[in-house]
Design a protein around this nucleic acid. Sequence first.
RNA 1: UGGGGCGUCGUCUAACGGUAGGACACAGGAUUUUGGAUCCUGACGUGGAGGUUCGAGUCCUCCCGCCCCAGCCA
Length: 575
Amino acid sequence: MPNVKDASAGKPRPRNFIEAAIEEDLSTGRFDGVHTRFPPEPNGYLHIGHAKAFLIDFETAEKYGGKYNLRFDDTNPIAEEEEFVDSIQADIRWLGYDWEDRLFFASDYFEQLHEWAVKLIKDGKAYVCDLSADQVREFRGTLTESGTESPYRNRPVEENLELFERMRKGEFSDGAKTLRAKIDMAHPNMNMRDPVMYRILHASHHRTGDKWCVYPTYDWTHGQSDSIERVTHSLCSIEFEDHRPLYEWYISQLGIFPSRQIEFARFNVSYTVLSKRRLKELVQAGHVKGWDDPRMPTLSGMRRRGYTPEAVRDFLGRTGVSKSMSVADFSLLEHCLRDDLNRRAARVMAVLRPLKLVIDNYPEDKTEELEAVNNPEDKSAGTRKLPFSRELYIEQDDFREDPPAKFFRLAPGREVRLKHAYFIRCESLVRDEENGEVTELHCSYDPDTRGGEAPDGRKVKGTLHWLSAPHAVRAEVRLYDHLFLKPDPDDVEEGKDWTANLNPNSLEVLTDCLVEPGLAGAAPGSRYQFLRRGYFCVDPDSTEDKPVFNRTVGLRDSWARIQKGGESCGQVQRP
RNA sequence: UGGGGCGUCGUCUAACGGUAGGACACAGGAUUUUGGAUCCUGACGUGGAGGUUCGAGUCCUCCCGCCCCAGCCA
């Protein structure tokens, strides 16, 4: 299994409340092993919140030497599609997990579930109800008032059996009847007020086709599926806590393997939203380009953005497992990303907003090759040759005609180092006659500083990245920032909704960037560190002659912080 | 004003009834051929009030606050 481990791997992880419960079960003999499951509904793409959930399911099983299943909870044919069955598996595999031969579908248990429903009917524990959806709601009562029993509640067993059979055959229209468990309409827990077990749905299911006209509800399916698979600990999110009595009721009425449901808090991340409904809205309203838009918290979006499975797992592992409301800091994710990428990403140079620079005392027709290390954190990554010539490009913001305090970069009369190359001094500049903007810098270089070191021992405060004009390759770079302006997207003024917090600048596309010649034709998914800028990943939109890069995460930028003054930051990334 | 759950630095989390610790974030410094990385330092917390105890984040009582539930969604 995924043994790659994060920095925190060595330290003994304290036991969380789930592990404490499991150890209790093991010591009392309630269970003699641990078997878990991840039960996604194939109705959308997985996001980081789902990842947190299956990480808990899978790693908990592994910790106790047990197995885990992947089971699709496909009980609602109207919402579910084969496409998601595939994407969900791909996303889980991407994070490094393998359920081996334990891939299941709740729909595999439809026949068994039906038999059990018949048993409950025969036991007088379930009945066919003719109330409409609206009536069922009215009869259910409210949070503070108990409900009213359905007039169909005491139908004879034989009649229930016959009606249920006819429901199955499709003799009734959608919604005309339901099969309900007979529990207690006055129960303080709404879930126990005669919950619906089956609804009539003349819909085609992605796996069972048109075989069924009745489909089981979540409550009637989940616990029994766990039981069939002999899942010991059915870990789920906290909103199912008040479903537990029902989960246990069904299992005990049936007298089958008693899986235990344990709930944990849902996972949230600052500056984003994690509900399928909202994610869908972002896609449909065109706020993002699709489910795999690199700004999306979906696993497919994060993958495209260049996030590594190791960093994502590290992030998820560093955040807690508890029952209290939790919002993980996006900055922790960024930290995990930088930590991982710093060790493995090859360094290259890329100029995002080019400013031409001519070295007047460098021979016009000369080109030389300079050696550059690929990764100072990993000597085994080796070195590469970089072409250097008289005409170069540097970053626009690496030059200031009138440098502010603490600005260490290039300015008139100043000397800086070109990374891996030479010391250069700015001698003069050329302006655009119309608007007065600086369009070109003229510099001199010191041939004795080849490689970046001065024999006389003099120092420079700044080191810039650069590209040889005739050798550079054109590229498109997409810069991403938080999707929302506030840590909590719901933090809006009266009358406005979460979309008011959408960050209008979450994507900035730069089309005239330049990168090292070695990056032409880089394979989609390849990751690099653009020196002094951040970590970037090749996007699938890349073409033979024009690579496209996504900024995964910027480098920590203490200069940006100085410029911003005391104002706290972390959210604003500018190259 | 029904039921269920949850409250420890800004965030996520530790702490047999015995010095409230760590990580991220933040602030300062050292170092540096990336204003990166690395290293050092600092500031910041037990929702509140009582009670038990030599001693309470931990035990008891009351209060306050937040989240979930009235789908034939999951």
